[in-house]
Design a protein around this nucleic acid. Sequence first.
DNA 1: CCGATATTGACAGTCGACTCTCAAAGTTGG
DNA 2: CCAACTTTGAGAGTCGACTGTCAATATCGG
Lengths: 192, 192
Amino acid sequence: MWERKRAKARNAIQREALRLFADRGFAATTVEQVAEAADVAPSTVFRHFPTKQDLLVLDGYHPLLVPLREAFAAQPAERTALQALRGALAAVFAAMPDAERAARYERDVAMVTIPELWSANLGLVAKGMDAIADLVAERSGRAPDDARVRGLARVVSGACFAALLDWSRNPEGDPAQAIDEALSHITDPPPL
Amino acid sequence: MWERKRAKARNAIQREALRLFADRGFAATTVEQVAEAADVAPSTVFRHFPTKQDLLVLDGYHPLLVPLREAFAAQPAERTALQALRGALAAVFAAMPDAERAARYERDVAMVTIPELWSANLGLVAKGMDAIADLVAERSGRAPDDARVRGLARVVSGACFAALLDWSRNPEGDPAQAIDEALSHITDPPPL
DNA sequence: CCGATATTGACAGTCGACTCTCAAAGTTGG
DNA sequence: CCAACTTTGAGAGTCGACTGTCAATATCGG
């Protein structure tokens, strides 16, 4: 029971913190204000999050990689790695419950919108790129640090990032669709 | 003469600051240490750089958007927008004096490596994407917010970003080459 | 209900970024 | 050299992040 209570408090603190950061900015928000908003003592905030920056670190982000790996493996063998990646990403988003998808969008947009949040999670982006490289390497039988594998991973992760960044600035339709569309520009380049 | 003396002191402070940041990290370096290393008083540091973060901002930095625009216009008409972009980027880097290129690499790597710097310059990434979209729109005669134009801009800017990010983590060869290679995965996708 | 254990709040205190002020020292034009 | 001007050093002071301690409180096993 301790665990559940602890996690509940932790989530409340982080939720309020992110809300305040989005409102008035990271630097302009004091830990004391976060504590007050979450209805806890300042010392309690530090007990859950060693530093103020840690309030920005989103855990539970990487679980996306597991279903992605499965969806990727389920792709038809005749597809190229790029087509398979595109298909797998679309499948993962399609299979996601609406509530979870909405929560993820909100988090991802916050991550691109709040500068400090982005910098705190830069490592996650790099990890995502590595994960994609691993997938492609496994499927193609090449080494994960093969130039072609790494190059493909760069392009795909970069396209996903840029699609999200652009979508967050001008939300129209579905982010998953934006990602798929961006990838389509690599798989089937339109004449321009 | 005031001007020259002021600039000299400013450069000395920033040089020592960057050296210390590279050595022990940004957060682990105090302004007092920077002042001592530069042989000035702490208050003098703040007189030249309003905040500690400002010690990271290199002046004399001009975005390569202008030369890129020129190089893009100079590309052969028979190339696709994508090929022209790739060629223009390569041309800009090739035409850049060695010293300037080295300085640019150093700065770009710092920007991706030091989170504090990245968060300060996130807006530049979005602007770069818009600029690329403008170039493509102008050349293709389509609107800058055309879905295909925006999609292409997303993929290209994303690829550049990812290439730089990856290169900064594992520097081999030339960043310009990494960018070109990433773009080649879109123009001439290798079989994978 | 009771004791063991985990969590919290309140509080004091350190440290560094940053501001403000004023006197000292260097610089320039005359 | 003098006088106006600019920069600098020094110091005091504010504010917020962060640490450590201790008593109060909540939960659990028995």
